[in-house]
Design a protein around this nucleic acid. Structure first.
Lengths: 137, 137
DNA sequence: AGGGCCAATGTTACAATATTACATTAATTG
DNA sequence: CAATTAATGTAATATTGTAACATTGGCCCT
């Protein structure tokens, strides 16, 4: 929250969206946020999509591309929002995610630089099975 | 193609889909394939989505998660389909993609193993600017 | 060749995800 | 307080992807 103040205003839509993502305790879909937004009925999609964009820019949440879902950032107090990029371990069985630092970012940038490519942002998502779900098998 | 024969049949829908992806010379969206499928009108979505799934399983194409798009595999002759996973450099300006080997896969697996996570598949997508688009600025 | 099987396709409908456009309200600043 | 910009409300629609079920086509077996 302190982190967000550095940027812009934490309005009630944004806070409500962030609360729902925190409460989800794992990746949550935009339309699940939309459905839970009000006690009675659903929110309008733009309300939530705008809040999601904002929260992502602030580094409070991450979008998981391979799931079309969003998850609260574990480590937003450890990074500036701008440079903040993270990797994820995504369990294909239970749906839980674990945020990890991307190993060897410089190796990726070096490889990119070989063809003159300048990296702005890295998406790293590893799908597999978490420990608990392996035991269950 | 030889590679595909190892698995199943390269039917005409599958071939047509693959041709369109090869011809696209960069990531192409499913609905662009659908629109171009027939000379006259569009294909039905399931026709193309089925073909895309098949081609991906065969290792002939890759799905780019952060673009909801598909691109022909550069290196399917160098890998068995099952173990085949690739990284991508995606230019935010011109839309071109470059396929790269994922550096330090073992580092990712080792990090995952710290919490008992078993990795099945890695998505690595680096967005940024290709050389040509940097020069243009 | 005829019958049985399964893979693949056709077809319709719909679900899920996301954005555009424009009107309105709220906050901030000079 | 007026002017300006940021944020929100609202309706409609665009984009992406799947479910369900009927039908066809290839293949194997005797």
């Amino acid at each position: 929250m302190l982190c967000a103040e550095a940027g812009e205003r934490m309005t009630s839509s944004r806070l409500r969206t962030y609360e729902l993502i925190l409460a989800a305790n794992g990746p949550i879909k935009a339309y699940d946020v939309i459905d839970r937004f009000h006690p009675e009925g659903a929110a309008k999609p733009p309300t939530v999509y705008r809040a999601l964009s904002f929260l992502e820019q602030m580094g409070l949440i991450h979008r998981i591309e391979s799931l079309n879902a969003f998850v609260a950032c574990d480590t937003h107090d450890q990074h500036s929002a701008s440079e903040h990029t993270a990797g994820f371990l995504l369990c294909e069985c239970c749906g839980q995610s674990e945020e990890i630092a991307i190993p060897n970012v410089t190796d990726i940038e070096t490889r990119a630089a070989k063809t003159g490519f300048k990296v702005n942002h890295i998406t790293l998502e590893a799908r597999g099975l978490c420990q608990a779900c392996q035991s269950d098998q």
